[in-house]
Amino acid sequence: MGGTPGTGTAHLTVERVDATLVLTLNRPAAKNALSPPMLVGLYDGWLAADADDDIRSVVLTGAGGVFCAGMDLKALAGGGMADDAYRDRMKADPDLHWKAMLRHHRPRKPVIAAVEGPCVAGGTEILQGTDIRVAGESATFGLFEVRRGLFPIGGSTVRLQRQIPRTHALEMLLTGRPYSAREAERTGLIGHVVPDGTARAKALEIADQINACGPLAVEAVKSSVYATAEMTETDGLAHELEHGWPIFGTADAKEGAKAFAEKRPPVYRRT
């Protein structure tokens, strides 16, 4: 009990689709509000994806046409949870909930968010820890904390201004108002708006494109992007050379060139 890595929990479903691990927030009756079982399952899912070299990408989505309505404060305080094992896991690692929400953990595999319905408060905060974002037309976003006299402490006062223009970040943070999917796309918070009910399919389509690429190259590129984000251009370019050149010496790089010459799909072996 309390979550076995990679198998999911009562509130987090784990599914393998080819080379993609799909993590589904599964508490639709509560609008997928974050609970101890969900947070434990999420963190274990991130670890399982990192540990399995056959997994090349992760899709994060929600069940029941909802992404996530934020924290369930009652559940996190201990109310309404029949299984103490989840709370024991969280007590044993006081940072677990931040790792689950991608505040204190960055998976080495690309993470694609597939959003349907509400993605607000803690949902929008988790979203900022993902790499690529797809939303259904009726999806809604927002950081409502200030309306309740609270602080969006999942990382939004730091991350949001680095992901979208500061004027948009401050408006979202300081008004606490909801944003439509189209408005979120215009600000740059999400990358694709698709018909309702198709966000997961679009996310899996993007995942398939990533999965067809060299996994060592993909992971090195993702790592470099985040590592250099706050560096000067000079330091960032030096880091890129240091971490990018070794990729050219891999067997996968040779396979990519050979496959191109032979006009066939490459077969990458992570070597």
Score class of each variant (00 low, 15 high):
D54Q: 12
L173H: 01
Y226D: 14
T124Y: 03
P36K: 07
K222T: 03
G122V: 03
K91Q: 15
L96F: 02
T250R: 09
E145R: 00
L143M: 11
L25R: 13
L21N: 08
A229R: 15
M172H: 02
M38I: 05
P118G: 02
G64T: 09
A82C: 00
E242Y: 04
A217F: 11
K222D: 03
V59S: 00
E242S: 11
P178R: 05
V115S: 03
V17K: 12
A253S: 13
P178W: 00
R106T: 10
L160T: 01
M172W: 04
G62T: 08
P94E: 10
H243S: 12
V14M: 13
G142T: 03
L73W: 05
E171P: 00
A184Y: 04
L102D: 02
L237A: 13
A217W: 06
L42C: 11
D131N: 10
D208C: 03
K263P: 00
D235A: 15
I206P: 06
F260C: 00
D44E: 15
N211G: 14
D235Y: 10
W245N: 06
E15D: 12
L241C: 08
M101D: 05
A75S: 10
P110E: 06
L150E: 15
C213A: 14
C213K: 08
K254F: 02
L23D: 00
G3Y: 04
V22Q: 08
N26G: 04
M172E: 05
T228I: 12
K109C: 09
I190C: 05
S224T: 13
T130S: 07
D95I: 05
S180D: 01
A203C: 07
A121T: 10
D84N: 13
E15L: 11
K31I: 08
V158F: 14
L76P: 07
T271F: 14
F144V: 10
L150K: 10
H239Y: 12
T175Y: 09
G136A: 06
T130A: 07
A19S: 15
V218I: 12
Y86M: 11
A199E: 06
